[in-house]
Design a protein around this nucleic acid. Sequence first.
DNA 1: ACAGGTCGACTTGTCGACAAGTTTAAGTGC
DNA 2: GCACTTAAACTTGTCGACAAGTCGACCTGT
Lengths: 224, 224
Amino acid sequence: MRQYPAAWLKGQSRGEAIAGELRLRIVDGTLKQGDVISENKIAADFGTSRSPVREALKALSNEGLIRLERMGAVVQGLYAKDIAELYDVRYLIESFAQQRLASSCPAEVIATLRHRIDCMRVAAKYADIAEFAWLDFQFHDGLVAAAGHARIARLWDSIRHVVLAVMLLTTEEVFGGGPVRLERVVAKHETIADALESGDEAQIAEVVRDYFADSRRTLRSTWS
Amino acid sequence: MRQYPAAWLKGQSRGEAIAGELRLRIVDGTLKQGDVISENKIAADFGTSRSPVREALKALSNEGLIRLERMGAVVQGLYAKDIAELYDVRYLIESFAQQRLASSCPAEVIATLRHRIDCMRVAAKYADIAEFAWLDFQFHDGLVAAAGHARIARLWDSIRHVVLAVMLLTTEEVFGGGPVRLERVVAKHETIADALESGDEAQIAEVVRDYFADSRRTLRSTWS
DNA sequence: ACAGGTCGACTTGTCGACAAGTTTAAGTGC
DNA sequence: GCACTTAAACTTGTCGACAAGTCGACCTGT
């Protein structure tokens, strides 16, 4: 059984931990589309009362991973089409954020991004998959946050957990591709940082488009 | 005290009802930015236990109307800037949805839209503010749903309640502008339906841009 | 007067229990 | 064998209670 990295649960409530675990089980296919899960069953599985489970199911429902019905929640799953749609939305959000950063991107932000890129190289070297995925996520998370648009940030929040889970799984696949593949991923992030530093709207737009076009190719090989 | 239309609560749980009421109080300014509310206090106000209140606060937090902290939830409020940002997001979502409908918009969808427009005229005639706002909302809701993009639909779901509350308040203001102003609002929706029926991408893009540019003007007069 | 510690009034997170409703399953009459 | 009724096993929504933690006010020593 694949497990949710313990470091990602630090300071979270039981409900969030349960949500994280279930999310991963749905994304990696352990819980299949059509499976029905009940609060009681999950509560028994995790050894807690229904309250945290309830919170978790509500969250998963907001993320579209399950559908809450009168009797039990039915798993929706996350398959190729859903991933494609998820990346449609990521593109919408991130291109908006980066266009906004084009006009005024503080040097501090660029520095933070580059710092994370350096850390990614280290994580790649030491084969730390969870850390690499986490840094990848932090990179994009920081980007959206830096845009300074509260409502867009909420949108990002509503998909962030799913994005993180998907990243964890794709990162596993990317690590299987060896150092060359990894370096290409890191380099892709570098082009984003470069574009943002240039401040050229057109260049940023192109880089973001390329980034997601490339991501889609990677995804297609993972979820085929 | 302004009240949430009872018809909108049909079949909802206590938690959703509380969320609806609180949402309106925040959007209309009864609850101001910086106010702190506790689960106990709200539970006492509504005469329920903390469970439904907890659910409501969680929802409001997801919508960005409040911020959950260790001791009490602090109200964020929804002011001019927030409304502007909300409409940035609406534009992002709805323009995406409508572009998607450009290539293939079933006649059934157009018919439903036109039906709602007709109903809006009736609601305007009989000065039924809540019904008018509801139809306006249903129009856009139907549009997004018709696009057939599950992830975009989730995005819309995450802002729909806030959008509805804002619509209710702006509709009140619009009714104050008399029949001419109302007819202009209805006509705006008609241009959208027309554009969708034409199936011309460029025309749709322009109409949607116009629609939101006009909406922003209306909003600026309501929230000044 | 003031720094530091202590108590008390709050908060949230979690728990187990109950009521109301729905679905499945077992009868039951024929 | 089959339609119909009834009962049992689920489900969720809600409730009140408790534990753990946080913040503020109030003392106390100096």
